[in-house]
Design a protein around this nucleic acid. Structure first.
Length: 185
DNA sequence: GGAACGATCTGC
DNA sequence: CAGATCGTTCCC
């Protein structure tokens, strides 16, 4: 498992630290290769208007899973970070499949792009809205975040965030350089 | 009570 | 490149 204190910093600090960590749901495991940071003072963040029924798990303790429905269609998965009540999160944008690839492919209707997108990775790992609020650091949870000893990249690829219309300029998107990926594609 | 707008993906 | 598709939020 992961030490919770790693997630208790602010989102732009924590986000790149989550690169190369493992996300596990049952037999399906993926390595996190792309993330984005969202903070409560950020116009693009769901938490910018304070706590609401939808975003309330974003305000819970670091390591809580925040799931929401995007475009009325796709589920997106975030990890709540920072202190309790802050409303900060890291959006998980892409995984490299590590284990359970056949299962992922079946969930992805036979496609080969298994988890290279926030909606796709939730489909591949079968993360659903009902998983909103699970503690990713509790061994009893169905979905978990763990560290297998692969460190985050020293020089992640930094970019701007995607799919938002406000606060586009913030360089709050981090990726593992495709040439430095640890897992099979 | 209603309308606008998405932290996206797919297929045309 | 536009359509799908529906919950959330805000405004009337």
């Amino acid at each position: 498992m992961l030490d919770r204190s790693l997630l208790e910093g602010d989102a732009p600090t924590v986000a790149p630290q989550l690169l190369n960590k493992l996300l596990t749901h049952g037999g399906t495991i993926g390595r996190i290769v792309e993330v984005e940071a969202y903070t409560p003072d950020d116009p693009a963040s769901h938490s910018v208007r304070g706590r609401t029924p939808r975003n309330s798990t974003m305000f819970e303790q670091a390591g809580t899973l925040y799931c929401y429905l995007s475009y009325g269609v796709h589920v997106c998965a975030n990890v709540a970070v920072d202190a309790v009540g802050t409303g900060a999160a890291v959006l998980l944008r892409a995984l490299d499949p590590v284990h359970g690839i056949e299962e992922m492919r079946a969930r992805r209707a036979g496609r080969h792009d298994l988890a290279d997108g926030p909606g796709k990775l939730c489909q591949a790992l079968d993360i659903r809205l009902e998983h909103d609020g699970v503690d990713l650091l509790d061994p009893a949870s169905p979905i978990g975040l763990s560290d297998d000893g692969v460190p985050p990249p020293k020089t992640p690829v930094v970019g701007t965030r995607i799919g938002i219309s406000v606060a586009r300029g913030r360089p709050w998107r981090w990726r593992v350089d495709p040439a430095q990926r640890q897992s099979i594609q």
